[in-house]
Amino acid sequence: MNDLRIEPVDGEAMVKDWQYAHNAIIPTDPLSLDDVRERVQRNHLEVAYLGDVLVGCSTVRPPTSDASVATVIARVLPAHRRQGLGGEIYARGLARARELGAGVIETVVLESNPDGLRFAQRHGFVEIDRYLLPGDSVPFIDLRLA
């Protein structure tokens, strides 16, 4: 179909690419490089490239020890949306979450990202919560796979 390449974050260049994609899509909660380096220790982070062009990133938060809930977040940069790339990134993250023992899958979308919200709803997610981070004015929407 395409030459989409999705790889686990490995090395400083990929940390920077993941950070760029995250911060472009979640401008209300920008992460520093140190934040990303810390997250890669506890979550499964991947970056997606079409050829050599960065198109997005993903996060899989593994299930916690007290629950089988994992969070799968697929992010596609606006210029690369509506090409099926998000579906491929999401499917890979979903498979990873299930490998890690997830029985319940959730995701989170910034309210100001209507493309992301529609994507989640088209893939079977339903809203379960909305919340603001301290100092923010744009809510995050938590969704669960029905």
Rank of each mutant, 00 (worst) to 15 (best):
M1Q: 09
M1D: 14
D3R: 09
L4K: 11
L4F: 04
R5C: 11
I6C: 06
I6N: 07
G11C: 09
E12Q: 14
A13G: 03
M14W: 00
V15A: 05
K16P: 00
Q19S: 11
Y20D: 00
Y20M: 13
H22A: 05
N23R: 09
A24Q: 14
A24R: 13
I25L: 15
I25T: 15
I26A: 04
I26V: 15
P27M: 06
T28M: 01
P30E: 07
S32M: 05
D34G: 00
D35V: 04
D35Y: 08
E38T: 13
R39H: 08
V40E: 09
H44N: 03
A48F: 07
Y49I: 03
G51V: 10
G56N: 10
S58M: 15
V60K: 11
R61G: 02
P63T: 03
P63M: 01
T64W: 07
S65N: 08
S65T: 14
D66Q: 12
V69Q: 12
A70C: 07
T71Q: 15
V72P: 00
A74R: 05
R75W: 12
V76F: 01
P78F: 03
A79E: 15
A79R: 11
R81F: 09
R82A: 13
Y90Q: 03
Y90V: 04
R98H: 04
G101K: 10
V104E: 13
E106L: 00
V108E: 15
E111F: 09
S112W: 02
N113T: 04
P114A: 06
L117A: 12
A120K: 06
G124V: 07
G124Q: 02
G124H: 08
G124S: 06
D129G: 03
L133G: 02
P134K: 11
S137N: 10
P139C: 04
I141S: 05
D142G: 04
D142L: 10
L143C: 09
L143A: 15
R144W: 07
R144L: 01
L145T: 01
A146S: 14
